[in-house]
């Protein structure tokens, strides 16, 4: 009995070594199958990397995302924020790390964490979201956030691409933020807190590289606007912007 188990152990040890030199038919088949549909890939996109006039108080805005994974499951990272040149500080800065799973032909469900470094003190949120392409070709990114203080908020971004020529593309964009309660320490009031409507006109020198110009109207609304006014800030304004969209 002992020598039998010894034999079994040694053959188990020997098996992987043999497999490395001459793969078995089933291993080869597995390898071939994996190479026909099982590709894992990484993607990085700087969707908005732009300078915004911001009515004489210019900022740099970044909005980038990237993923790594296969057709169904991906690790998805998003970051966006604004850097104020005059104040020499970040007005906003957030990073999200999400697990993304394809749930339909055109949509991915996402869940994970978001961390804000600015404004104010650090805040962390739990995130669930839905990202994809709606009928009539609107690119939508929507998410529900719950902060570590239990504050609930939501955001929806939608974009549309209008081809003027094959390379000159007008992209209207809107972003709405909702608060489900007042968060006075961050100047946020319950309800629709901020809205942004803009359009960018880009020229795709290559599909992967497109400089653009645009205009954006941004406004705090409701109680959020009141908080801003109380702080001596303008609750809204128009920005002219110039930037670049890249992906690889």
């Amino acid at each position: 009995m002992k020598w039998l188990s010894l034999l079994a152990t040694s053959s188990l040890l020997a098996a992987p070594a043999a497999a490395q030199t001459i793969p078995s038919n089933s291993e080869m088949r597995e390898h071939t199958r994996e190479h026909h549909g099982g590709l894992t890939l990484g993607y990085v996109e700087g969707e908005r990397l732009e300078y915004r006039s911001n009515e004489g108080d210019p900022v740099f805005l970044w909005d980038a995302q990237g993923w790594y994974g296969g057709d169904i499951n991906k690790l998805w990272v998003k970051t966006e924020g604004e850097y104020d040149f005059k104040a020499d500080e970040f007005e906003e800065a957030e990073v999200q790390a999400l697990w993304s799973r394809a749930i339909g032909g055109f949509f991915d469900a996402q869940a994970g964490l978001r961390h804000d470094f600015a404004p104010g003190g650090d805040r962390t949120f739990a995130v669930v979201g839905l990202q994809g392409l709606t009928p009539y070709l609107f690119e939508v990114d929507s998410a529900l956030f719950v902060s570590d203080d239990g504050d609930v908020s939501a955001r929806i971004e939608a974009e549309y691409e209008l081809l003027i020529t094959q390379r000159l593309i007008l992209q209207p964009r809107t972003e709405l933020n909702f608060e489900f309660q007042d968060v006075p320490e961050y100047g946020l009031g319950s309800g629709l807190s901020t809205a942004e409507v803009g359009a960018r006109l880009r020229y795709e020198i290559k599909r992967e590289f497109a400089p653009y110009i645009g205009v954006s109207w941004e406004r705090a609304l409701g109680d959020t606007a009141d908080f801003a006014r109380a702080d001596g800030e303008d609750p809204g304004g128009v920005s002219f912007l110039a930037g670049v969209r890249i992906w690889f």
């Binding site: 071939t32 199958r33 190479h35 026909h36 549909g37 055109f106």
Partner: peptide, 17 residues
């Protein structure tokens, strides 16, 4: 699925059958 650039027979990629 052109959008995701997935191609298959009977809805299953070779890697999935």
């Amino acid at each position: 699925n052109m959008h995701r650039y997935m191609w298959s027979f009977d809805g299953r990629k070779f890697s999935e059958v």
